[in-house]
Write a protein that binds this DNA or RNA. Structure first.
Lengths: 297, 297
DNA sequence: CGAAAATATGCTCGTTTCGAGCATAAGGAG
DNA sequence: CTCCTTATGCTCGAAACGAGCATATTTTCG
């Protein structure tokens, strides 16, 4: 194998959920994700990623999963570089973080993705821009409707990345202006990040929202013991919408992923039973949370 | 960003389904996948991949989707390299392929993955080796059971990669011996490939099997017009198991992804209606094939 | 202390989706 | 004309879902 030598960068999206809010670990006061170059000392990509993330933030990554690899369009001088991004699930610790390292609510970057409470972000702050962008193009209008659930289309929570990319294409996020794309109205609300880090965060959220539906990875974000409501709030925080409590309970119990600890949680109302993830399941990893289809025969 | 310069390789897994058999486009008489280094002339990773695949095989890639990126464990001298793999869906053409380029039935590499007809591959050729490997380790036994549906566990068709990796770990595929791992009995049947190409193929099959269940990508593999049975056979070929015909028909029709062409297909029995993928849907790409859950509220 | 508020939990009901089959329709081969 | 083969329609019971009603326990507040 030959080809020009290039540089490889490892980028982490460390996620935690603390008290009903999803958080992402950032550098420079929320403007960048932890990242660093792949070095020869790294035994593997994941090892390199963990090394960098911990070195930069002082916080160890837990469960790690590769997201996507992309290359910048050959920005000549410095030579080409590719970025390999990872989703990391951890628990937020109270350990003080150094310098400008901080946990940020991820909806700070995507306010329109949080629909747990009725807020008209999209109607008032995004739809006008989309209308302007899609005026005169049925194709634009159709895409906007599908992504943002306009014109009677249903809202699909998994389309975080598609929505961000559409806003970028439409010149409705600041990154687009920064990169020299034409504008179509006021910017959508939401904090900007350096380079394409906000896009990577969107990728991470998309993946996480999709994956919690068929794999038991939420537990990577939960403490040892928790109540069913804790678990529900965590999932709601990630999914960005609320769930029907009794049905959620039924679903979880039918999966048999949890076991009671025997103790109860204190709180403002009736105490709830505490549960923990069934250790036996940890080995399996195969099914769980599933609900496949396509009958055999 | 700095870090040592490395080499990046782009690897394609070009898949087609022809007459009820899934095929993969290979080089060197089935022993390697098309691959080549990322070059500065490539506008993007995907562009580079398409370029290499077409140059090597003479066959253009159709739909392309990134699979996974991995690094070899720093094989010193030549410098480090990373590989970025892609799944590509196309239609097999009758165009003659040059040299040692050929389409191969992918079950040639994973005979145990084809369960459309009852064949005791696993019982006779794999279980003995697994038994030997897991003798004395409950953890090994549990993993083997879950992966291969032993001891009453259900068979999960999506675990192609997990099964291959387990066989590798257990020293039951030739690559393991080649890489110097201890053996645990006769090798499982199935053709070997160069480097880790067979593992990449397993990754591609896993992804494809999982994805056809919730996204309408099968159509990338179908001709313009087809009967419902054609479509069913294609999916069965990929999934490795047969489907209940009437229910399959009901499912497909309920999704409204297809429209009748008006003509009929000839054949051995009653002529079947021909369908085509609804062009309007091409724009959507969002839902389709779905069957999510988690009630809102 | 008694009532109101806040949660936790149990259960029901009508609707859909799924898995399995029975039955009928429409060509081709002998 | 009859049999074989594949296409299609429909039904039935089970399981999964979406929405609520009802009850049980605690804490909080007047």
């Amino acid at each position: 194998m030959s080809g020009e030598p290039i540089h490889a960068e490892l980028i982490a999206v460390p996620v935690a959920v603390t008290g009903a809010r999803p958080r992402v670990l950032t550098l420079f006061d929320g403007s960048a994700l932890p990242a660093g170059p792949l070095e020869s000392g790294h035994r593997s990509l994941q090892a390199g990623l963990r090394n960098w993330a911990e070195r930069l933030t002082g916080h160890p990554l837990g469960y790690v999963e590769q997201l996507y690899t992309f290359a910048d369009p050959a920005r000549s001088r410095t030579g080409r570089s590719i970025s390999i991004s990872y989703l990391a699930l951890t628990a937020e610790t109270r350990t003080p973080l150094g310098g400008r390292v901080s946990w940020q609510d991820w909806y700070r970057y995507f306010p329109w993705e949080d629909r747990r409470e009725k807020i008209a972000t999209i109607e008032t702050a995004i739809k006008p821009g989309l209308d302007h962008w899609s005026a005169g193009s049925d194709e634009h209008r159709a895409r906007a409707s599908l992504c943002f659930g306009l014109d009677g289309a249903a809202w699909n929570e998994d389309l975080v990345l598609a929505r961000y990319e559409l806003l970028y294409e439409a010149g409705l996020v600041r990154e687009a202006a920064r990169d020299g794309r034409p504008a179509h109205g006021a910017f959508a609300p939401g904090a900007i990040m350096t380079a394409d880090h906000r896009r990577i965060l969107a990728t991470a959220i998309s993946r996480l929202r999709a994956k919690i539906k068929y794999r038991p990875i939420v537990f990577e974000l939960m403490p040892e013991n928790f109540t069913l409501l804790d678990l529900q709030r965590c999932i709601e925080a990630i999914a960005g919408h609320t769930l029907h409590k009794q049905n959620f309970r039924r679903l979880i119990e039918s999966q048999k992923l949890l076991e009671e600890t025997g103790s109860l949680a204190s709180g403002s109302g009736r105490p709830a039973k505490l549960f923990r993830y069934r250790p036996e399941i940890l080995a399996e990893r195969a099914h769980a949370g599933t609900r496949l289809t396509l009958a055999r025969s």
